[in-house]
């Protein structure tokens, strides 16, 4: 019954709701429920990227540590977002820290499991590409805007 629950959860997530039932069943095999308390470290820079988190409730901060001052939050992620993309790109290692800002409920997908399934079934890999890429693109565009520092004072 637990597997069935995860399928349902996946089908309700904005990024995965486009997948058909069969695919969701396939992915559910790699999935498990996750829970973090406020302040918990979800992953740290340098950790193997062995999971991707689909956030269902709560807020996560993606941070970059600096040596001379407090870490900088570069992005916060919220219900419906996908946390972590290093699992798709070798060497499969996180390049930032992720911290639970509030209590978080999420579903994680095992990276090895997903990669194996995609290798075996390129059509699944292509579906993942189609549905994850738009989410990634939105975030890359957002980061570009942040880089512009549009609210900064421009002394002319």
């Amino acid at each position: 019954m637990r597997i069935h629950g995860i399928e349902e959860i996946l089908s309700e997530h904005p990024v995965f709701k486009a997948f058909d039932k069969e695919t969701l069943e396939l992915l559910a095999g790699c999935a498990r429920n996750e829970h973090f308390r406020a302040g918990d470290r979800i992953f740290a820079e340098g950790d193997p990227a062995d999971k991707v988190f689909l956030l269902r409730h709560g807020d996560a901060a993606v941070e970059i540590a600096t040596s001379e001052r407090a870490p900088i939050i570069v992005e916060t992620l919220h219900a419906g977002d996908v946390l972590g993309w290093s699992w798709m790109v070798p060497p499969y290692r996180h390049m930032s820290d992720a911290r639970a800002m509030t209590e978080i409920r999420a579903v994680s997908l095992g990276a090895d499991c997903m990669r194996t399934k995609c290798d075996d079934n390129p059509a699944l890999g292509y579906q993942m590409f189609q549905n994850l890429l738009p989410h990634m693109a939105v975030r890359v565009r957002a980061l570009r805007m942040q880089v512009l520092d549009i609210y900064g004072t421009k002394k002319g």
């Binding site: 807020d59 407090a70 939050i73 916060t76 957002a142 805007m145 942040q146």
Partner: peptide, 23 residues
């Protein structure tokens, strides 16, 4: 409310207005 970047004392959103607006 969202900000472009913050230190860990910030409990609100970090990101651009458009992401926040979409939500």
């Amino acid at each position: 409310v969202t900000v472009d970047h913050a230190n860990p004392a910030w409990t609100g959103r970090v990101g651009v207005v458009t992401s926040c607006l979409d939500r």
